[in-house]
């Protein structure tokens, strides 16, 4: 607990304001964290589906290209690859999920029909077509996976950040502020008690003084009256 706060009423009010603000912020951040985690769960399901598709597609693509290379030879496959004219392109836009900017990737020219590929129909066999097809399919899944995994990475970052903030407020800032508040309240009470005690003392002293004065006056009066008797 920080003892360096000055125990004044003004400070106490400032601290009470800060506590109120921090508590409000804490509630809001907690809600944000829960919301983010819910959104994340949705994406996670999606990601797991995409991942298993990705693995299946990769295996199929590998099988196909191995077949093509075995049957047609490495040179034919490379030749076909070198002849390609269209190249896949991606453009990314962004989408906002609870303050996290996640990309939405759009692709063009990934899937191509036979005549778009540009390596000719006569010179190559169906196996190369199949392999190209499988790899195009794989690329599509990769693009989807990239989108989903980027979203996951960003959301995880944000969840971690929010969690850290919630915890900092809950376990560090708020206890400190409550401590300071209690400290000031106790100090002020103490000061009040001291003040009352001081007042009592002063009152007692005053009464004592007054009594002494009265007694002295009375004595003087008596002294003045005594000779008159005689």
């Amino acid at each position: 607990m920080s003892k360096d706060v000055k125990p004044t009423r003004k400070n106490l009010m400032a601290i009470e304001d800060r506590i109120e603000l921090s508590e409000r912020g804490h509630d809001t951040l907690e809600k944000k964290r829960d919301g983010l985690i819910m959104e994340f769960m949705d994406i996670l399901d999606q990601a797991q589906d995409v991942r298993s598709d990705l693995d299946d597609n990769y295996e199929r693509a590998q099988r196909n290209i191995n077949m093509a290379r075995a049957m047609e030879g490495d040179v034919a496959v490379r030749g076909a690859a070198a002849a390609l004219k269209e190249h896949p392109e991606i453009t990314s836009q962004s989408k906002n999920i609870m303050g996290v900017v996640v990309p939405q990737i759009e692709s063009t020219k990934v899937k191509k029909s036979l005549d778009q590929r540009g390596y000719g129909l006569v010179g190559t066999s169906a196996r190369i077509d199949e392999a190209a097809d499988a790899y195009e399919q794989l690329l599509e899944t990769i693009i989807l996976a990239a989108e989903v995994e980027t979203a996951m990475k960003k959301m995880l970052d944000e969840i971690e950040k929010t969690k850290r903030r919630v915890n900092a407020l809950e376990f560090k800032l708020l206890p400190e502020l409550h401590g300071a508040q209690e400290y000031i309240e106790q100090k002020l009470e103490e000061q009040e008690r001291e003040e009352i005690f001081r007042m009592k003392k002063i009152k007692a002293k005053k009464e004592e003084d007054e009594a002494a004065e009265n007694a002295q006056e009375a004595a003087e009066a008596e002294v003045e009256t005594v000779p008159a008797d005689g």
């Binding site: 496959v77 490379r78 690859a81 896949p88 990934v110 190209a132 790899y135």
Partner: peptide, 8 residues
């Protein structure tokens, strides 16, 4: 190699 076949 396979990706080159898909146009990468």
């Amino acid at each position: 190699a396979g990706f080159r076949l898909a146009g990468v």
